[in-house]
Write a protein that binds this DNA or RNA. Structure first.
Lengths: 220, 220
DNA sequence: TATATGCGGTACTGTGGAGTTTCGGATCTA
DNA sequence: TAGATCCGAAACTCCACAGTACCGCATATA
């Protein structure tokens, strides 16, 4: 993922000499690709702490215990590094494959409230916050943010709601898309503007005070 | 030239021995305070377009057709200018005094959907977006943003909900605070992350698809 | 009139960060 | 081995911007 641009560059250089598309006859020390994720993780840390404009390549390199040249050898600019870091964030994502399936909408929603998951989500929101002002200027970044941070969460909620519709727990004509966006939206607002934590209490209030009533269910 | 400078230096040195610590006797041309709001408005425009870090004092001065020195004579730094600009934004705010009172919660909420109001809110959200990464580092700015952008909107919704409770239209135990935050939160998310417009359709979907069902009401 | 300040405009200074280069050393291929 | 490329580290160039200083003019007081 990280070396895509450089690999393409190498291929292009090779092709100009009419050599094989992929056989650049590599020479010298090989690039240590185990450092890629370390640098990307460092970038995400700095991004969450200082935002895009506050982040410097030196900070990232220092945190990853790497040289600046090592960073620039892999990503040609700060913007590319950030886009790649965000795009590669899906890795430590919530398991979309084995979601909880408790038989009730509330059970499913509440089952997603885990300290680990919350902590993870909160950092992602911080990262997103540091990118807000860039999103409007870089379509590629907006795309990456959406795919890595926004959409996964929304997809989970959408799945739960559709399941509830299928088993007849809630009405089929409720606005699934808007409801799926509800908790991510309000969590973002709470973290980035109100500067309050997204804790269990808040999420339960959201589920029992808004989402369930909105689909005609009651909290136990 | 050099002679003049030395002469002035001599005069100043002489006066410093007789100068009083506080000499408020105003002299010379008066500061034109009608320029203050023009500069602040220019700052808000630039802020909405480029964000805090993208904004330069030259941009603000140029848009206000003012000199940079004129800006720095009134605000000692970029940060102070921005905080003041945000704080002084309440001016063109929605009239909190004469809110609509239609007799139903839905009527009140729908009555707030005005093209002028939407346009205004959208620009405020853009400004807020440009400040997100600063909010976490400057408590004063967080305060200003909350007072100028967030709280007014929330207060309106809170008023409508409390009214509805008082007249028995909705249950008294519903979560007013969370519900009042709902539309600002989702509107922020829509503008800043999804990059979609906060149009009448979206707001109606929010009212009829989420808020009203959540308090046990139905859309007509 | 003399002096002092504000005005828009322009040129300047100082700083910090993006991106480049260099260095000594390590690791690969031929 | 020899040459090429990587590594971390540090020095370097270049540029944009915050903030300052000055210019010529306008407008205030005394």
């Amino acid at each position: 993922m990280a070396d895509t641009a450089l690999a393409e560059k190498g291929v292009t250089a090779a092709m100009t000499q009419l050599d094989e598309p992929i056989a650049p006859a590599k020479l010298g020390r090989k690039r240590d690709h185990t450092r890629d994720p370390e640098i990307l993780d460092a970038a995400l840390d700095v991004l969450a702490e200082t935002g895009y404009d506050g982040m410097t390549i030196d900070m990232v390199a220092a945190r990853a215990k790497a040289g600046k040249a090592t960073v620039y050898r892999r990503w040609s600019s700060k913007a590319e590094l950030v886009v790649d870091a965000v795009a590669c964030m899906k890795r430590n994502d919530l398991d979309v494959e084995h979601l909880p399936d408790t038989g009730t909408l509330r059970g499913d929603l509440v089952a997603m409230i885990k300290p680990r998951s919350i902590e993870d989500a909160e950092k992602k929101l911080q990262i997103m916050g540091g990118l807000v002002s860039m999103i409007s200027r870089d379509p590629g970044l907006a795309e990456a943010v959406n795919a890595a941070i926004v959409e996964p969460r929304v997809a989970v909620n959408r799945t739960f709601l559709k399941r509830a519709i299928e088993r007849g727990e809630i009405a089929a004509d409720c606005d699934v898309e808007t409801l799926a966006l509800l908790s991510p939206s309000m969590a973002s607002y709470r973290v980035l503007i109100e500067q309050k934590p997204v804790d269990r209490e808040f999420l339960l209030a959201l589920i029992d005070g808004v989402i369930l009533p909105a689909v005609g269910l009651k909290a136990p």
